[in-house]
Design a protein around this nucleic acid. Structure first.
Lengths: 223, 223
DNA sequence: TTTTGTGAACTAGTTCACAGCT
DNA sequence: AGCTGTGAACTAGTTCACAAAA
């Protein structure tokens, strides 16, 4: 059938975007295990997903499968990396060189998929000039705008106290950043055109506490 | 499929559970600012939520509001803490004393809302016996089961490499744990009756990369 | 055969809009 | 007047089921 690469205008949901990333990880596992092709059903069974959903998510971006066969692991992997924008190095700057910021800077999962942690920023003079254990340098916040532009940073990760997060988000937006991953608690306001993703650790724990408090729970998953 | 929980016959979604936690944080802010009552509309405007949704979420659990007035901040806060199971100390054990585990152990947001990080577990003998900067002791994994029971741990947080996560999850379940917050990448299988919540850092970043790659945006979102 | 890709059906989640209480 | 609580309407997301392709 005809090519159905999105002609701008249509939005892909957050949920779909997250699943694409999950599929890619599954394919990496399969590829590493030497598996050449995989059907949506096998993929679904092995990673507890729904086969129709996998097909639908993928079909949104093209016809990657072969009827009667399934998907070629390597080929689908390549497509997914392209769709997720991982065909080039994605540059990340982390703001906040506290425990969390330092941990994120050295998180091995980021480098693995082609992210480059270009710098860690902090306003505290005591931290500036030092490096994370993994070797990411800590830079003064006053250099933020300049470095974001010079190093063409794509994504800013916020790991600062809630009281500072809106200011830093504003600074990031002013520096031309269009994607922010926020680990600070509380609500951030960003202008349209900037994609904000919140990872709220307290909400995650409290949500578990809620289910514990009510006794009854299902089995898995998803965040 | 989304997980639901019984509320006298009704079921509450994961999404609602997360929002309750968000509402509680908003109320803390308002209370700290000396605000006595708040309407769903004011709450919604101030924190960019939807007023009807706030009312509906709260109405699941009782009639906390007063028509013509709104909600009494202190009272609603108390109710929410009860609903979220935060009226008693919730005990948390973290497995994995790497960068991330250590950062989570000292994360101030957890203590603030009444969580107690009882211990950090690791299999590496070199780490055992030491403490996090914040003073959480690192215990040998062989003590895991015993301590989980002795300290009546409620929630286990997984911050171990993907290769170890299923084994640790199994150990947690075997020790009677019914709620797991998983920071390890990959898919975990837990039996029914155990609540699993995944925070996948790579998926979060890749999802942002995806939106950057296709120039889409939208402003906010909740995780 | 097997398995995709996809409209249709279904399910879940959100927002509207208003009755009814203060 | 103001505001909650809630059915009804709407929107988003998932799963079903099958025609078409290899």
């Amino acid at each position: 059938m005809r090519n159905k690469v999105r002609t701008g205008g249509e939005q892909v949901s957050e949920l779909t975007a997250g699943r694409l990333s999950v599929y890619l990880r599954c394919l990496n596992t399969l590829d590493a295990a030497g598996v050449k092709t995989v059907s949506s059903r096998t993929l679904a069974e092995q990673f507890h997903l729904n086969a129709a959903q996998i097909r639908k998510d993928l079909a949104y971006f093209g016809e990657f499968g072969v009827r009667g066969v399934g998907y070629y692991v390597r080929e689908l992997k390549r497509h997914l990396r392209l769709i997720l924008g991982l065909d080039r190095t994605v540059r990340v700057a982390i703001v906040g060189a506290g425990n969390l910021g330092l941990a994120l800077a050295d998180y091995p999962g980021f480098r693995q998929e082609g992210f480059e942690i270009a710098a860690l920023f902090d306003a505290e003079q005591e931290k500036v000039g030092r490096k994370s254990r993994g070797g990411v340098r800590i830079v003064d916040m006053s250099e933020f705008r300049k470095l974001v532009k010079r190093d063409s940073i794509d994504i800013v990760v916020l790991a600062v106290p809630a009281s500072a997060s809106q200011d830093v988000a504003n600074a990031a937006v002013a520096a031309g950043i269009r994607a922010i991953l926020n680990f600070s608690p509380g609500t951030l306001k960003v202008p349209p055109g900037v994609k904000l993703k919140n990872v709220d650790l307290t909400v995650s724990l409290e949500s578990l506490s809620f289910f514990l408090a009510r006794g009854e729970s299902g089995d898995d998953e998803e965040a």
